[in-house]
Amino acid sequence: MHVSYEVRAGDFSIAGKVSSTVKGILKQLNLTPAHVKRIIVALYEAEVNVVAHSFGGKIDCDIDSEQVVITVSDTGPGIADLELAMTEGWSTATAEVREMGFGAGMGLSNIRKNTDILKIDTGKGKPTIISMTFRLAEGAEHA
């Protein structure tokens, strides 16, 4: 099953709408509550990142019985130093983003904690593409 959604930059009134829709789909597909939670927490953090930091982007979800693969891609401006950005507590968030309860530099590490495979392709002035794989097979429950 494949679904795709656009994410608008800067519009916090609808940030989380895609994650909410995907959560509904995952529940309908009878994924365990534990799987749904970690997939949705990672997706929501990524969606907020697109709204807060990018020029806009999209979210693609591929779901089968073995795994869920979610690709969150934006059109820039990219992350100059990914290693630094992955450090808990480091953030470039604006005051507006902080007022929304985010921007404490925990987003990417929250994403990493909840994914089985995380790939991030980015660079200064480039699009950012985050690919998150969540395994659903028995015994592959995330720690």
């Binding site: 989380g16 959560k23 929501y44 309860g101």
Partner: peptide, 17 residues
């Protein structure tokens, strides 16, 4: 328990069950 009164507080609760 929060003093953050905006949509994201509700969305975060939703995502966190």
């Amino acid at each position: 328990i929060t003093g953050l009164s905006n949509n994201q507080a509700i969305r975060t609760a939703e995502m966190s069950d």
